[in-house]
Design a protein around this nucleic acid. Sequence first.
DNA 1: TGTCATAATTGGTCGGACCACCGGGCCACC
DNA 2: GGTGGCCCGGTGGTCCGACCAATTATGACA
Lengths: 229, 229
Amino acid sequence: MKFQNIKRSTISHQVAETVRDAIVSGAYVPGDPLPTERALADEFGINRSSVREALRQLESWGLVEIRHGAGARVSDFLSTAGLQLLPFLLAPGGRLDPKLLFDLLELRVELLGFTAGHAANRADPPAIQELAACLGRLEAATDVEDVQVLDYAFFQQLVVMSGNRVLALLSNAIARVYLENRALFSMMYVGGLDTGPHRRTLEAVGQGDATGARAAMAEYGASALGRLR
Amino acid sequence: MKFQNIKRSTISHQVAETVRDAIVSGAYVPGDPLPTERALADEFGINRSSVREALRQLESWGLVEIRHGAGARVSDFLSTAGLQLLPFLLAPGGRLDPKLLFDLLELRVELLGFTAGHAANRADPPAIQELAACLGRLEAATDVEDVQVLDYAFFQQLVVMSGNRVLALLSNAIARVYLENRALFSMMYVGGLDTGPHRRTLEAVGQGDATGARAAMAEYGASALGRLR
DNA sequence: TGTCATAATTGGTCGGACCACCGGGCCACC
DNA sequence: GGTGGCCCGGTGGTCCGACCAATTATGACA
């Protein structure tokens, strides 16, 4: 039994999360005015400073727009927010949005291929060795949760090898989706993981075969996508 | 003559931007402790509340990690932050990072293809008509800045047509890169824009030809990438 | 030398005050 | 009828000073 990290949370974080969930779950519609800072402070029974800190957070998530003297409004976050919202949009109020998950995995297929292809182009021996080690650890794992983590580590190593920092940032954002909704993705791993595509990817990357690596990784992504239906 | 919107800024935003730039430009290295809230307030000559609001923002950008009683440390943002940092990483301290721009455009090629392909699969007549209108406006424009905006609008319409909401969030993030560094990308448009790929994309999307649409849009992205060298 | 209570440091929360800005209503003026 | 000036209540922005809570440094003691 491993203990979870105890998450200590500040009041402002809790408020931000509460209001954030209210917004993404549709309790507030884009354009709606938020209660005033003083009203929120009253409602939550906390100080206005804490509310303000929470609002700053909501603002930087792209969820609300604050105007001096005129209050805060819920913004049209689907056209202003970035991927940092995805973890919370995926299962608002505990209810999974299957279409959104499908969209994510669909895009992931593309990114997996892109990543593997560029990793093959730019790989150097030590990195390839590290990738092989990742694969070894993955194949040795039995616990579902470990498999999940190590599978992601394999992909992460490919991202590093690709040398594309924009891709790295993008993959950070996607990693958060996994972390926030770990249970959601565990279904992709029940009944064991076929590491065949991983092995073929490793081989192709080792030979600098970008086309092969891309195909192998895309195949893996597509199979995960297929398992969703 | 159109007047620009006057942008009013709060103190906390200014502080957040200042510290953010100091971090991404390397003045602080990941792991470094930030000055204490009280010290920052003194240094900037402002109140501690404003500093705290700024720190919340930096925290939600993934740039710093705050621990009760122990101060704030700069986090290893390249492995924790998401795409929302990209606009500022691209030209820290006014100096362009050409490799990062290359990485972005390289990834963009992939995304353009993905977007066009899926748009072709899911397009309906009114959306296609709107896409045609986008192309019309683009070809009618003469001002470089207008071309830049309308070129992006064409892509944005493809994103909408693809029906992939994750892609939409991703493209929001990338849009911010354009907006924050508009001048940087204007070079891609000097000497006019060849709208041939756009026209071929429109045609392919209209016929539901995913492969053709993907190829046309990828070609366009690759040409932009080539112009960078 | 190692341990542990304690003090100092630092972030978290609070209450209250005042300023800056927005929106709407009102009114004089053209 | 329309325009601009003016005022006023509501709301966000900033400040101050105080105290609480967690961490870290300190130093006495065994």
